[in-house]
Protein backbone atom coordinates (compact mmCIF):
# COMPACT_ATOMS: atom_id res chain seq x y z
CA UNK A 1 0.00 0.00 0.00
CA UNK A 2 1.35 3.41 -0.95
CA UNK A 3 1.59 5.82 2.02
CA UNK A 4 -0.66 8.82 1.41
CA UNK A 5 2.14 11.19 2.43
CA UNK A 6 3.99 10.17 -0.74
CA UNK A 7 1.56 11.76 -3.18
CA UNK A 8 2.45 15.43 -2.53
CA UNK A 9 6.15 14.56 -2.65
CA UNK A 10 5.70 12.84 -6.01
CA UNK A 11 3.73 15.77 -7.42
CA UNK A 12 6.49 18.17 -6.32
CA UNK A 13 9.08 15.91 -7.97
CA UNK A 14 6.98 15.96 -11.15
CA UNK A 15 6.80 19.76 -11.21
CA UNK A 16 10.42 20.41 -10.28
CA UNK A 17 11.93 17.98 -12.73
CA UNK A 18 9.65 19.24 -15.53
CA UNK A 19 10.88 22.80 -14.97
CA UNK A 20 14.54 21.92 -14.61
CA UNK A 21 14.27 19.49 -17.52
CA UNK A 22 12.75 22.18 -19.71
CA UNK A 23 15.65 24.56 -18.98
CA UNK A 24 18.40 22.01 -19.48
CA UNK A 25 16.94 20.22 -22.51
CA UNK A 26 16.04 23.42 -24.40
CA UNK A 27 19.74 24.29 -24.52
CA UNK A 28 20.78 21.06 -26.29
CA UNK A 29 21.78 22.08 -29.85
CA UNK A 30 19.96 20.60 -32.85
CA UNK A 31 23.27 18.95 -33.78
CA UNK A 32 22.71 16.51 -30.91
CA UNK A 33 18.95 16.04 -31.10
CA UNK A 34 19.13 12.42 -32.27
CA UNK A 35 21.50 11.31 -29.46
CA UNK A 36 19.35 13.34 -27.05
CA UNK A 37 16.31 11.40 -28.13
CA UNK A 38 17.96 7.98 -27.93
CA UNK A 39 19.36 8.97 -24.53
CA UNK A 40 15.80 9.77 -23.50
CA UNK A 41 14.82 6.27 -24.67
CA UNK A 42 17.35 4.95 -22.18
CA UNK A 43 15.97 7.17 -19.42
CA UNK A 44 12.39 6.06 -20.11
CA UNK A 45 13.72 2.62 -19.20
CA UNK A 46 13.61 3.96 -15.62
CA UNK A 47 10.37 1.94 -15.42
CA UNK A 48 12.71 -0.99 -14.81
CA UNK A 49 12.74 0.13 -11.16
CA UNK A 50 8.96 -0.11 -10.92
CA UNK A 51 8.85 -3.42 -12.74
CA UNK A 52 11.60 -4.87 -10.51
CA UNK A 53 9.62 -3.91 -7.42
CA UNK A 54 6.49 -5.59 -8.77
CA UNK A 55 8.47 -8.62 -10.00
CA UNK A 56 10.12 -9.25 -6.65
CA UNK A 57 7.00 -8.79 -4.54
CA UNK A 58 4.32 -10.13 -6.86
CA UNK A 59 2.49 -13.42 -6.58
CA UNK A 60 3.34 -16.06 -9.15
CA UNK A 61 0.29 -15.16 -11.23
CA UNK A 62 1.56 -11.63 -11.92
CA UNK A 63 5.27 -12.46 -12.04
CA UNK A 64 5.39 -13.21 -15.80
CA UNK A 65 3.85 -9.80 -16.61
CA UNK A 66 6.40 -8.05 -14.44
CA UNK A 67 9.24 -10.13 -15.90
CA UNK A 68 8.26 -9.03 -19.42
CA UNK A 69 8.22 -5.44 -18.16
CA UNK A 70 11.74 -5.83 -16.70
CA UNK A 71 13.04 -7.23 -20.00
CA UNK A 72 11.37 -4.51 -22.11
CA UNK A 73 12.59 -1.71 -19.88
CA UNK A 74 16.10 -3.15 -19.79
CA UNK A 75 16.23 -3.31 -23.62
CA UNK A 76 15.42 0.39 -23.49
CA UNK A 77 18.11 1.14 -20.92
CA UNK A 78 20.99 -0.74 -22.53
CA UNK A 79 19.90 -0.29 -26.16
CA UNK A 80 19.28 3.41 -25.63
CA UNK A 81 22.57 4.14 -23.87
CA UNK A 82 24.51 2.01 -26.35
CA UNK A 83 23.26 3.64 -29.56
CA UNK A 84 23.77 7.02 -27.91
CA UNK A 85 27.33 6.06 -27.00
CA UNK A 86 28.00 5.01 -30.60
CA UNK A 87 26.62 8.22 -32.05
CA UNK A 88 28.45 10.47 -29.64
CA UNK A 89 31.72 8.66 -30.33
CA UNK A 90 31.27 9.55 -33.99
CA UNK A 91 30.94 13.18 -33.01
CA UNK A 92 34.14 12.95 -30.99
CA UNK A 93 36.57 11.57 -33.53
CA UNK A 94 37.15 14.75 -35.45
CA UNK A 95 37.89 14.24 -39.13
CA UNK A 96 39.28 10.76 -38.52
CA UNK A 97 36.33 9.15 -40.23
CA UNK A 98 33.27 7.74 -38.59
CA UNK A 99 31.99 4.20 -38.54
CA UNK A 100 31.28 4.14 -42.24
CA UNK A 101 33.95 4.39 -44.90
CA UNK A 102 33.45 5.56 -48.47
CA UNK A 103 32.30 2.91 -50.86
CA UNK A 104 30.80 0.70 -48.17
CA UNK A 105 27.14 0.10 -48.88
CA UNK A 106 24.49 0.18 -46.24
CA UNK A 107 22.28 -2.89 -46.30
CA UNK A 108 18.94 -1.31 -47.13
CA UNK A 109 16.34 -3.63 -45.78
Amino acid sequence: MIPSSLLPLMLIALAVSSIIGYKVISAVPSLLHTPLMSGMNALSGITVLGSLAVFVTASSAVKPLAAVAVVMAMINVVGGFWVTERMLRMFQQKGKGGEMKAGKKIPWS
Binding site: L7, L14, S17, S26, H33, S44
Partner: peptide, 30 residues
Amino acid sequence: GVAASISGLAVGNTLLVAVGALVGVAGLIL
Protein backbone atom coordinates in the same frame (compact mmCIF):
# COMPACT_ATOMS: atom_id res chain seq x y z
CA GLY B 1 8.06 9.54 -20.76
CA VAL B 2 4.57 10.55 -19.69
CA ALA B 3 3.62 6.88 -19.36
CA ALA B 4 6.68 6.21 -17.18
CA SER B 5 5.90 9.25 -15.04
CA ILE B 6 2.24 8.34 -14.50
CA SER B 7 3.05 4.71 -13.80
CA GLY B 8 5.48 6.05 -11.16
CA LEU B 9 2.55 7.86 -9.55
CA ALA B 10 0.54 4.65 -9.66
CA VAL B 11 3.16 2.49 -7.96
CA GLY B 12 4.51 5.23 -5.65
CA ASN B 13 8.01 5.55 -7.07
CA THR B 14 9.32 9.12 -7.03
CA LEU B 15 12.28 8.36 -9.28
CA LEU B 16 9.97 7.07 -12.03
CA VAL B 17 7.84 10.20 -11.71
CA ALA B 18 10.79 12.60 -11.98
CA VAL B 19 12.77 10.86 -14.74
CA GLY B 20 9.62 10.11 -16.73
CA ALA B 21 8.86 13.83 -16.59
CA LEU B 22 12.33 14.63 -17.99
CA VAL B 23 11.69 12.33 -20.96
CA GLY B 24 8.21 13.76 -21.47
CA VAL B 25 9.51 17.33 -21.49
CA ALA B 26 12.32 16.46 -23.93
CA GLY B 27 9.84 14.83 -26.30
CA LEU B 28 7.48 17.79 -26.15
CA ILE B 29 10.30 20.28 -26.81
CA LEU B 30 11.40 18.30 -29.87
